[in-house]
Amino acid sequence: MSSLPSVAAPPPDQDVRSRLDARNDRWFAWLLKGCALLVLAALLGAAFATLWGGRHAFSTFGWHFLVSPAWDPGTDTYGALVPVYGTVVTSLVAVVLAVPVSFGIALFLTEVAPGWLRTPIASAIELLAGIPSIIYGMWGLFLFAPFFAEHIKPWLTAYLGNNPDGDHPSWVYDHLPFIGKLFSTDYPFGASVLTAGIVLAIMIIPFISSVMREVFMTVPTRLKESAYALGSSTWEVVWDIVLPYTRSAVIGGIFLGLGRALGETMAVTFVLGNTLNLSASLLDPGASIASTIANQFSEAVGLQKSALMALAFLLFVVTFIVLLIARLMLRRLAIKEGR
C-alpha cells in the first residue's frame, strides 16, 4: 500500500523567513498606526491641555466666565464675553462679505470665463491663500486701516451712523437705530471690527471660492446642457441647476471659511485695535479670542494665564464644531457623487 504523496516541507530557512516577514509586517503596521493615532492625539491633546490650563479660570468664575464682559487684570476678574463677541462678529462680517465675492469668482471661473483664462485666474486667487497671515496683518495695519479711516469710515458714519464730523446724525441713525448703532463711533482711527472683518474676508475668499469652484465642476454636464437647451441663461443654470445640486458642499465651503476666520490670529491682531470693551458698533475697536491671547499671554501670570487658556479652549471647541459641520456637509456631496 503506497502512502499518499506527502507535501514537501518547506526548507527551514524559508520558514524562518516567512515568519520574520510576518513579524516585520506586524511591527510596520503598528508603527504606521501609531503615527496616524498621533493626529488624534494632537487634537485631543490640544483640547485637554487648554482645558487643563484653564481649569482655575473655569472653577473660579464658573458659568459666569462665559457671559461676563469684565476683563480686568487689576482686580483679577475675567470674563470671556468681549473676546468671544469680537471673534464671532469679525468672523460673521468676514463670511457675509466673502460669500458673495467667492460665489462671483466661482461663477466666473466655471461658467463665464473663456477656457484659457480659467487656470491662471484660479491660480492667482489661490495665491491669496498662500500669503502668510502676518503679511495680511502688516498690510492691514499700514495700508488698509489708514485707507479705511480716510475713505470708507467717514462715508459710513456720515450716511449710516452718528455722523461725528457733521451737524446732526444721519437719517438712518434717526430712523433705524439698530443699523445706525452699527456704524456709529467717535473713534478716529482705522482699527475696528469692520476692518478686521474685511481683512479676514480677503483671507477666506480663496478657501470658499476654491471649494465652490471644485464642487460646481462636479455638476454633471448633462444637467447643465439640458437646461441650456431649454433656453436657460447662464445665471439661471447656475442658480437653478448648479446651486441646488451642490448646496450642501457650498454650505460646507462657507463653514470652512468661517472656521478659518474664527481661528485667525495675526491678521486680526493688527487691525482690531485690541480694546476689551463691549461695543455694538462695527466701527469701534474690539478684541478677539486669538488677539487677546497673542497680546497678553507672554506677560500673564496666575489667574490671567488660566483665563487665556480657558479662552483658547472655547476657541478650539467652537472652531472644531464649525469645521466638523463643514466637513460633514462637504462629504454629503462626495457621497452623492459615489466617491
Binding site: 490640544a46 491641555a49 487648554t50 478659518r260 485667525e264 499671554f297 476657541l315 469645521l323 466637513r327
Partner: peptide, 24 residues
C-alpha cells in the same frame, strides 16, 4: 475617522496648537 479629523486639524487655530506645545 482619522482622515476626517486630520482635515479638521488642517484648519485648527494655530494659536491653540501653540498653547498646546507650550503646555506639553
Amino acid at each position: 475617522s482619522i482622515r476626517f479629523l486630520n482635515d479638521i486639524l488642517l484648519s485648527a487655530p494655530s494659536i491653540v496648537l501653540g498653547l498646546f506645545v507650550y503646555t506639553i
